[in-house]
């Protein structure tokens, strides 16, 4: 399975990439919502999952989620917000726009893996020899 990590922080992309790489994902990256759309448009094999920050330059995460949901050809992509935005109204807005899950920064690797498990997206048994 492939994941697209959309975050303007390289450090955060690296951290999330390591967690998801360990969980068996092939990782794609983008630094903002517009770059993420460009990455998706260039793919012949779409990612199963996109992890999306909210506050980014150029195009924010909520706009990206809305754009992905607008396009029928991208309907199969599971969207998880990974963001510092912790207020309940923000969570409701993201879920209403089409996000499937919501993970608040700061988070632990275990919390992210738990979200993947909830989404049924753990391709390997994390922590077990592969």
């Amino acid at each position: 399975m492939r994941v697209l990590i959309v975050d303007d922080s390289r450090a955060m992309r690296r951290i999330i990439g390591r967690i998801l790489g360990d969980a068996g994902f092939e990782v794609l990256e983008a630094g903002d919502g517009q770059e993420a759309i460009d990455v998706l448009e260039a793919q012949t094999q779409l990612p199963t999952l996109a992890c999306v920050d909210w506050n980014m330059p150029v195009m924010d995460g909520l706009t990206f989620v809305t754009e992905v949901r607008r396009r029928p050809e991208w309907r199969a992509i599971t969207l998880m917000m990974v963001t510092t935005e912790s207020e309940s109204d923000r969570i409701v807005r993201a879920l209403a726009a089409g996000a499937h899950e919501y993970l608040i920064k700061p988070f632990t690797a275990d919390a992210m893996v738990e979200k993947l498990d909830l989404l049924g997206l753990l391709p390997v048994s994390v922590g077990e020899p592969s």
Partner: peptide
Amino acid sequence: DDVHDAVGEVLNIVGGSVKGALGGVLALGL
């Protein structure tokens, strides 16, 4: 650049936690 980015992200996450704890209507910058 990686050091700058990491320190900025640490403050971004601290800022997000502060914003959430403050209440009210607030927007966090970059």
